[in-house]
């Protein structure tokens, strides 16, 4: 129960952070990505604040043997740079640049229950599901030795 409550509070604080910083507003995000227009540098300040606090918290976590409400830390184990990382990130970048919305803000804005955000989130979930199917198919056709590729997520 403590684990569920802590996860809920993390999501709540994360969402409030997105709202206060304005990063749930597509116009604000697109304003940052628009280097050649009326550039809005706010997103860089959001990143700086977030990375500084998260790095301090992670340093604290690294000193502990285990998290408070779970058996072990789930730090990402990979540090290689492979083709799916680059291709996937590029595809994500196109979508992010088209709409100015990434997964966190999409879920925060889902609270408005308006047609555009419902369409976006439905398509996003479909895209995620599509990747799962595509990956299962390619793993199946490549043979069992490729199963090891399915590793824990970085985020």
């Amino acid at each position: 129960m403590a684990l569920i409550l802590a996860s809920f509070c993390s999501g709540l604080i994360f969402g409030l952070g997105l709202l206060i910083s304005g990063m749930n507003e597509p116009e604000k995000v697109l304003g940052f990505l628009d280097f050649f227009g009326a550039w809005d540098a706010t997103l860089a300040f959001v990143m700086a604040g977030a990375v500084a606090v998260a790095a301090a918290g992670f340093a604290l976590a690294r000193r502990r043997v285990a998290p408070l409400f779970a058996a072990r830390f789930g730090w990402p184990s990979r540090n290689d740079i492979d083709a799916p990382l680059l291709t996937g990130s590029a595809l994500f970048g196109v979508g992010w640049g088209l709409a100015g919305i990434c997964p966190g803000p999409a879920l925060v804005n889902l609270a408005s229950l308006t047609a555009p955000i419902i369409v976006f989130v439905a398509a996003m979930v479909l895209g995620m599901f599509g990747f799962e199917l595509w990956q299962r198919r390619s793993v199946a056709s490549a043979g069992a030795q490729s199963v090891a590729v399915a590793t824990p997520s970085d985020g």
């Binding site: 994360f14 997105l18 977030a50």
Partner: peptide
């Protein structure tokens, strides 16, 4: 407001790792 909101995002990420051991 960007810095403040960002700090909250960082805090939430730290909290999730410290409590659940999960990456936000």
């Amino acid at each position: 407001s960007g810095l403040i909101g960002g700090a909250l995002i960082g805090l939430a990420s730290a909290l999730l790792m410290l409590s659940a051991g999960r990456l936000a």
